[in-house]
Write a protein that binds this DNA or RNA. Structure first.
Length: 182
DNA sequence: TAGTGTGTTTCTTATATAGGTCGTATCC
DNA sequence: GGATACGACCTATATAAGAAACACACTA
């Protein structure tokens, strides 16, 4: 079972913003400190996902746990800008999901040293002194996989859930083969 | 050598994972 | 004061974005 933990999407509104005045107009939902970072942060609620808006009109949505919710947040964001007269509607913002972070569980503990050898040393990085997880990069996948001794798995870099599920399925079979051989 | 131009790196945000370290709090 | 417990934060991964700070190459 692959579960989405974070979705990152980006778009471009094709208009330039004066972030100083935009943040002043939007009030408490906006946070802008150009000395700290050139982007303006926008959050509709305390636990809501974060929207980072740039001077060029480009923006990033992070912190959603599904693709649909990311699109829903984008819709709310565009509606809010239109309501405040900052953009015209309908806006063609070329919004795209860029990255999905997923977790999964192999439901068995793993010997990461053995797994690094089995999966191929050229495709894996495992330095437990530096980081407790094994990093697996296969040319067969779009994404990068982090494997932990507990059997928990993090899949990151996927453009969609189908791709992450496919990656996890292939990985599960590869690991099963390795463990059966050993 | 100084100035300019280009390219690279770092910063920030979200999120899971887990081991290690560090600081703070509580108890004896 | 010492021991233990707990939380926070660091490490790494992907991804977008813009700006600043660098490093390096080239020309005058």
């Amino acid at each position: 079972m692959v579960k989405i933990e974070n979705v990152v999407g980006s778009g471009s509104l094709g208009v330039e913003f004066d972030l100083e005045s935009v943040s002043a107009d939007l009030g408490s939902i906006a946070e802008y400190d150009p000395d700290k970072y050139p982007g303006m942060y926008l959050r509709f609620d305390e636990d809501a996902p974060l929207i980072t808006v740039y001077r060029t009109g480009k923006y990033i949505i992070t912190g959603e746990d599904s693709k649909d919710e990311a699109y829903s947040t984008r819709k709310k964001f565009l509606h809010h800008l239109a309501e405040n007269g900052m953009i015209s509607t309908p806006a063609d913002d070329r919004f795209q999901i860029q990255n999905i972070v997923c977790t999964a569980d192999l439901e068995r503990s793993l010997n990461l040293n053995a797994l690094a050898i089995g999966l191929g040393l050229e495709k894996t990085e495992y330095e437990p002194e530096q980081f407790p997880g094994l990093i697996y990069r296969s040319p067969d996948f779009d994404s990068v996989i982090l494997l932990f001794a507990s059997g928990r798995v993090v899949i990151t870099g996927s453009p969609d859930l189908d791709s992450a599920e496919q990656t996890f399925s292939i990985l599960s079979h590869e690991i099963a083969d390795i463990l059966n051989i050993n």
